[in-house]
């Protein structure tokens, strides 16, 4: 009963907020007219949109299999990239404002004067985000199953309806404010889980019960290189994922972005530290027999901890936190994926189309995207499963190289931009499918993307002077 009441209160709060934050213009819907004036909202919404249910459930349970290398590298790299992302955020905001960019492909198009590059990036985002969306929906539906005792399909329908309502009504302003609230729920959930494990293990005594093999930096059941590669590829997204960058675009001025840089890294540090430690701490709080079933399915470990260690009612809070993690990510991804289709690809082929029509299409196609990905999540095509794990890494690689060079180097050209996109995309996919190496595809994608970008830029720069375009202050 308490679960149903919690869920109803949660949904009501979401609907009321969406209605209050409703926007009638394309700029309002897509980047909130650059009017968000609360650094805490942007900072914490950024964190919520970044961490999905996969991090909450998978990242939490993953330490069971990988041991200390996962905990140490995942926390370290998340905080490192979060700090880096927020230190360069004011420059990104200024560049977006100067070019009046509403989407990330548009920002890079104007930076490099390359409409073709914009379309290539938008197509890569469309494919990769759609694949990732299917995977998150699957997790979200399973969470509703756990929270409400409904079937998988019913869980899926509930998840789809809630996200569709606040996406269509509110756009980015609703996504930001709702993600802010969801982020706070996620932080409370993460701290509760960490605290409950410490308490069960006898405080600091917990470390005495954890086997040395689990705390060895050479890895437990997985080589440390694999944990490092995975942590790197996931956390790189903090600097370059378009669904996070649009949150920076939405700030009213540079000062708001600057101070969001306090809330963002702190919330990421607290969340990552609590969640990624759980798998290792579990060895000090539970017996080996209790943990054995979860070595095969680490995703179901967090719900087990919540129901075993927390008082009734609090376990529902944890599930709600996991659902929040999924929804905040889904909503931001639906927005950037749809705008890449309407604002970037459609506008490229039909430049005369009006803002009002693009807004209508962005709303409508968003719902279509939510519906189609939910249908695919209901019966996930086997072909896309191997791509899920690299989908975010591909997007992060493709955006990272032209974005960072575009901010700090004057020599980049439009051809260099397109070459880096293609090199990153093709090398990651090929390496992922054909190498079988312990080196993560994202490392390869970054190297190939950078070499292609710099090489082609130098080759195509006008003789006697550096390519046009300015580094940003």
């Amino acid at each position: 009963m308490i679960n149903q009441v919690l869920l109803v209160a949660y949904v009501l709060a979401i609907i009321v907020l969406s209605l209050r934050l409703r926007q009638g213009t394309l700029s309002g819907f897509v980047i909130s007219d650059r009017n968000i004036m609360y650094p805490a909202v942007i900072g914490i919404a950024f964190t919520a949109a970044y961490f999905s249910a996969a991090s909450f459930l998978g990242g939490g349970g993953y330490g069971l299999v990988c041991g200390f290398p996962w905990t140490i590298w995942a926390v370290f790299l998340h905080v490192f990239f979060a700090c880096m992302a927020w230190l360069i955020a004011p420059r990104i905001w200024s560049m977006a404002k100067e070019y009046d960019a509403r989407t990330v492909p548009q920002l890079l198009e104007r930076r490099y004067k390359s409409p073709g590059g914009k379309v290539v990036l938008a197509v890569i985002m469309l494919i990769m985000y759609a694949i990732y969306l299917v995977a998150i929906y699957k997790g979200c539906a399973e969470l509703f199953q756990g929270l409400l005792g409904v079937t998988y399909v019913q869980g899926l329908i509930i998840a789809v309806s809630i996200v569709a309502v606040y996406y269509v009504i509110g756009g980015l302003p609703a996504i930001l404010w709702i993600s802010f609230i969801q982020g706070i729920l996620m932080l409370v959930g993460a701290v509760l889980l960490y605290g409950s494990l410490l308490q069960r293990g006898g405080g600091m005594q917990i470390w005495e019960h954890i086997p040395a093999a689990v705390t060895s930096m050479s890895g437990y059941m997985m080589p440390w290189e694999k944990s490092l590669g995975m942590a790197f590829s996931i956390s790189l997204g903090l600097v370059a994922l378009p669904d996070l960058l649009i949150m920076i675009f939405s700030a009213r001025d540079r000062r708001v972005v600057r101070f969001a840089g306090i809330y963002g890294p702190i919330s990421i540090a607290v969340y990552a530290f609590c969640i990624f430690s759980i798998g290792v701490l579990a060895y000090g709080a539970f017996t080996a027999e209790e943990l054995a079933p979860f070595e095969k399915s680490p995703d179901s470990f967090i719900p087990f901890v919540a129901t075993t260690l927390l008082p009734p009612g609090f376990d529902a809070l944890i599930l709600l936190a996991a659902i929040s993690a999924a929804m905040s990510t889904i909503s931001a991804i639906v927005l950037v994926t749809t705008t890449s289709l309407t604002s970037d690809i459609l506008r490229f082929f039909r430049p005369a189309i009006s803002d009002d029509r693009v807004l209508l299409l962005t709303r409508g196609l968003g719902v279509v995207l939510i519906g189609v990905s939910a249908l695919l999540a209901n019966d996930m095509p086997q072909g896309i499963v191997p791509l899920v794990s690299v989908s975010m890494g591909v997007i992060a690689c493709c955006v990272f190289v032209p974005l960072i060079f575009g901010l700090y180097w004057n020599g980049g050209t439009g051809q260099g931009f397109v070459a880096s996109l293609l090199a990153s995309f093709i090398s990651v996919v090929l390496w992922h499918f054909y190498s079988g190496s312990v080196i993560h595809p994202v490392f390869i994608g970054l190297i190939c993307g950078t070499v292609a970008y710099v090489g082609v830029s130098l080759f195509t720069a006008a003789p006697g002077k550096e390519a046009k375009g300015t580094g940003h202050k």
Partner: peptide
């Protein structure tokens, strides 16, 4: 006893946050 890598992690996380905040708060040019 908290393992050394975990202690090192806590110290480095605090250091990274502190450096970021110092840079953030000292940017008076905006």
């Amino acid at each position: 006893m908290v393992p050394t890598p975990y202690l090192a992690l806590i110290v480095s996380v605090i250091a990274m946050l502190a450096i970021t905040f110092l840079i953030t708060l000292r940017r008076f040019d905006d």
